[in-house]
Computed example of a mutant assay.
Amino acid sequence: MRKVSFAEFGGPDVLELLDAEEPHAGPGQVRIAVRAAGVNPVDWRLREGQVLGAHPLELPAGLGLDAAGVVDEVGEGVDGVGVGDPVFGEGFDTYAEFAVLSAWARMPEGLTFEEAAGYPSVVETALRVIREVGVRPGQTLLVSGASGGVGSAVLQIARDRGIPVIGTAGAANQDYLRDLGAVPTTYGEGWVERVRRLGHVDAALDLAGSGVIRELVELTGDPRRVVSIADLGAPEYGVRFSGVAGSVPDALAEAVGLIARGRLHIPVEKAYPLADAAAAHIDSQAGHTRGRRVLLV
């Protein structure tokens, strides 16, 4: 099979599409013929050697956590799913023609493989940070970097729970945030005052890692009311850096329910052939994403 791999840490150019041995499902796992794989910021952070404490790996290594595809091998102890079933979920080395998943769910009706590959890690992360920041219905949540995959999920989950959101994003994504139920404003010079004019902030999420932790603490008045998934320096300000996943099966189950009720939709901004993983990483690192980026197999 073909698989994206890298033998040294570095820029996008270290990624190679190589022939590799097929993986096989172990106990409690399924293997899928991958149709699409999600591209997450953690992927390029791993490629650069940034987050090895939370995600240890040995080189050469593959990449990818999220995928959607068709089950073609079922491990011991697995029930409720069989060969030929379309599923989406989370595993390892999903930038490949075959991948093993450790958490999965049947694909909701009407969702394409391309769309489904963008949900697993994004929804788990969104649910986790909303829980960790402790925001409740009626309290206002500020989301910095709100137009990407996690931001798109946070905004819609918050709307479903009755949590008002102020979201920051580029000028081109203001209407997109508004469509997802947020009160939008732009980042850049003067953004803190623009947020203050929009109202009191009870809690805040940093999803972009754009060096705004100090300002988020200032706006909330309490570092315990701020959570970051993107700024490794956040703990210096007393802010929690959230990098350890919670229950992915529970997150997938909630995602399926939200999708079925029409309360969650994460668009795919761009899809790339598997051979163009480096280009997907370059675009992901550049930011300004609206929704998700995926690789097609």
Results as ranks from 00 to 15, higher is better:
197 R>L: 04
249 P>K: 00
233 G>N: 15
177 L>W: 09
213 I>H: 12
230 A>G: 02
241 F>M: 14
224 R>P: 00
215 E>D: 13
182 A>G: 05
226 V>T: 11
218 E>L: 04
191 W>H: 08
183 V>R: 08
222 D>Q: 04
176 Y>W: 11
192 V>S: 07
246 G>D: 13
235 P>F: 13
220 T>F: 15
212 V>H: 11
219 L>W: 14
174 Q>H: 07
201 V>L: 08
232 L>C: 00
255 A>I: 01
228 S>N: 04
197 R>D: 08
237 Y>V: 04
190 G>A: 10
224 R>I: 03
220 T>H: 05
199 G>W: 04
220 T>E: 12
218 E>W: 02
187 Y>K: 01
208 A>Q: 12
242 S>P: 14
202 D>K: 00
241 F>E: 11
191 W>N: 09
176 Y>H: 08
207 L>V: 13
244 V>M: 08
250 D>F: 02
255 A>W: 00
188 G>H: 10
176 Y>Q: 03
207 L>P: 02
219 L>F: 08
180 L>N: 03
203 A>W: 04
192 V>I: 10
208 A>K: 06
188 G>A: 13
222 D>G: 05
234 A>H: 14
250 D>L: 06
253 A>G: 05
249 P>Y: 00
183 V>L: 15
223 P>K: 07
213 I>G: 02
242 S>R: 04
228 S>Y: 05
255 A>S: 04
214 R>A: 14
193 E>S: 06
227 V>F: 11
236 E>P: 03
176 Y>R: 02
190 G>M: 13
174 Q>I: 10
218 E>S: 09
205 L>T: 05
218 E>V: 09
237 Y>L: 07
184 P>Q: 06
174 Q>P: 08
226 V>H: 10
249 P>N: 03
189 E>C: 01
198 L>K: 05
201 V>A: 10
179 D>W: 03
225 R>D: 09
229 I>K: 04
219 L>E: 10
183 V>W: 08
201 V>C: 09
217 V>F: 07
194 R>C: 12
242 S>L: 13
218 E>H: 09
186 T>L: 06
199 G>P: 01
255 A>N: 00
206 D>H: 12
177 L>Q: 01
179 D>N: 06
202 D>L: 01
193 E>G: 02
237 Y>T: 03
254 E>G: 00
253 A>C: 06
255 A>Q: 01
180 L>F: 05
193 E>N: 02
192 V>F: 08
216 L>C: 04
233 G>C: 08
219 L>G: 05
220 T>W: 14
175 D>Y: 05
188 G>D: 12
198 L>F: 07
226 V>C: 13
223 P>Q: 02
221 G>P: 07
190 G>L: 15
246 G>N: 11
250 D>M: 00
242 S>T: 01
247 S>W: 10
197 R>G: 11
246 G>C: 02
202 D>E: 11
218 E>N: 07
192 V>C: 03
244 V>Y: 09
183 V>I: 15
236 E>W: 14
211 G>I: 09
231 D>K: 11
251 A>C: 03
195 V>F: 12
235 P>R: 07
173 N>S: 15
180 L>V: 08
233 G>R: 15
203 A>V: 03
175 D>H: 12
194 R>E: 15
191 W>L: 09
